[in-house]
Simulated assay, not measured.
Amino acid sequence: MPPISTEQRQLHTLGQLLSAGGYQDVPAMLRASLERLVTFWPAQAGALLYQSPSNEQIAIEYGGLDADAARMIGEVREVFARRDESSDPAIGYYALDDDRQLMEISLRSANQTVGLLHLLVRERDVERSEAAQPGEDMAVLLVRALGGEADKLAMLRHAEHDLRELHLLYQVSQSLATNLDLPSLLEEIRRQVPEVMGAERCSIMLLDEGSHELVLHTNDTHSGETREFRIPTDRGIAGWVATNGIGQIVNDVESDPRWFDGVARDIDFVTRSILCAPMRHGERVVGVAQVLNKRSGEPFNDQDLRLLTALCSQAAIAVENARLVRSLKEERDRLLAKEAEVRSAIARDLHDGPTQS
């Protein structure tokens, strides 16, 4: 058996590296792959762009990209979009100067172009010998297949995330369904939703249809007492959501003209970003839920809004059930009080009648 060359060993290692196995997330896999590709080629530096099936873009750089290379890569990235596979050449070259070129290889998954690899190489490294060409062709095939491995890992992690959310949503809905005391229920929602959403705080504002105000009850951080705030539905992001019935993602509240910071100032809480969704019961909006500031510091996204909307649907049903139970109890207490009053009147009449005769 002929001995295995250094380049063959490198290709074997590269092939193993570009497999998604063993990586916990897509950025880690892409980062490790880019570092090995820069070393293998060899290249002075590299950049990798990948767009997931959910259209999330991941951009990674490794090594020292100068201003010209960074500008050219940036221009290409700005117009890139995941697309059906075209007849683009396997490798493209962009001349930077007499000695350096920017090499471009597309990442493929099934019949789609899903990303781009850029390597900053010297002119003399581009002019490879005929003996090295098969190895380069194999490396190009491995790079192009990297998109498929990234897609597999991205879809796996997305499915795992969805399963975790469904499990948490089930747990929360089961918990809310068994609580029919309104104040306790609202406190439970405020406690559980931030855990599910990975946020710092949750505010529940119920709609007072008579006064057209959102009513918020919150604990004072200093005194521990419960305070009530009333916010007109024509003020603030929450008021806009209650009026229009459409969830909102605001990742920079200071730049949103609807932002009303009166409550935040009063309770001494710094709000940076808001995720707000209506609590619907049938066609009626019975309130809104606000989730404030992701603990990770990341911005809220559409998936977060979908999850909060689902939680709000469960919460709205629970709130209406608790209100119905409270209303029935109040009606029962009223009837019992009326019955006691009638009984007392009858007893008084029976007692007074013989006395007067």
Rank of each mutant, 00 (worst) to 15 (best):
Q290T: 13
G210E: 14
H222M: 07
F40S: 04
H281F: 13
A20W: 08
G239R: 04
G63M: 02
R230Q: 14
Y62W: 08
L324I: 01
S344N: 15
M29S: 13
A95H: 09
V291E: 15
V26Y: 07
D252T: 07
L117I: 04
R128A: 06
A318G: 03
L14R: 00
L305C: 12
H281A: 09
S313D: 14
M279L: 15
S19M: 13
Q112S: 13
D333E: 14
E341M: 08
Q16A: 04
Q10E: 14
L185M: 06
A110L: 05
D256T: 08
L37F: 05
V172Y: 09
V285K: 05
V76M: 10
D88I: 00
G239Q: 10
P183H: 11
S175M: 11
P232H: 04
G46N: 12
L335R: 10
V196C: 11
V288I: 05
H217M: 02
L142R: 01
L156D: 13
P299R: 05
E7Q: 11
A199D: 14
V241D: 15
L102I: 05
A154T: 10
R348E: 15
I246G: 02
I246H: 09
A20D: 11
A70H: 12
V270M: 06
E104I: 04
T355Y: 12
I73G: 03
E330S: 01
D261R: 08
I105Y: 00
D304A: 01
R36A: 14
K294C: 02
Q57Y: 04
E339C: 02
A67D: 15
P3N: 05
N244M: 07
C276A: 08
L169V: 06
A45K: 01
R306S: 14
L11H: 01
D25H: 13
P257K: 06
K294F: 01
P194S: 15
S52F: 06
L30C: 10
I267H: 07
A131T: 11
W240I: 01
Q356V: 09
P134A: 03
D151Y: 11
L120Q: 09
R230A: 11
S357H: 14
D220Y: 05
L34H: 14
A139M: 06
K294L: 03
H158F: 09
L206C: 13
A322G: 08
E127L: 00
L275W: 14
A28C: 03
H161L: 08
V253T: 11
P42D: 02
L305H: 10
R9I: 04
T243M: 01
S86P: 12
M72P: 00
A177C: 02
L350Y: 09
L141P: 01
V270P: 09
M279P: 02
F229R: 07
V263L: 08
Y23I: 04
P3A: 12
G63I: 01
